[in-house]
Design a protein around this nucleic acid. Structure first.
Lengths: 65, 65
DNA sequence: TTTTATTGTCAAGCTTACTTTACATTTAAT
DNA sequence: ATTAAATGTAAAGTAAGCTTGACAATAAAA
């Protein structure tokens, strides 16, 4: 699943480390997410949408397999 | 996390079995979801939003811990 | 160029979403 | 009242999200 985490994070001028701290996840989780290594849990997706002030759909692009 | 899966499913007149088949998950997954036993993966959330023709936010109500 | 900040990634382990199987309980139909 | 359909739930296993720790690679700053 594609996502715009990196773009949204940089738009806020944050480092992966700062973002992970705010969301209470590890930095590796953010790095892997941005790299598309895995999909986020729905709770992490909600946390991101809240911080980025947009909908989940605006951050994550779902394409059926 | 609260959700309106049962309400949306019944609005479509579907059984748990029919819904699970359409989403390609087990019936127990739907039953447990409706009962609030666990949160869905983001891919399952997207599948539901697509089938129900609404946003993830309209099905799942996130409240920070 | 040397240092420092930032990011990439690997391995091993934990947690939880989800599966299969199986059976009990509730609801609806006959 | 019986039967059948729909739902609840438990146990054991698999898959994937996420953690910690550690180190390499890249980017930015001094």
């Amino acid at each position: 699943m594609e996502n715009l985490v990196r773009e949204k994070r940089m738009a806020l001028g944050m480092t992966q480390d700062e973002l992970s701290a705010k969301l209470d996840v590890s930095r590796q989780t953010i790095s892997s997410l941005e790299k598309g290594r895995y999909n986020p849990s729905i709770t992490l997706a909600f946390k991101l949408s809240k911080l980025f002030q947009c909908t989940i759909e605006e951050i994550f692009i779902y394409e059926e397999e």
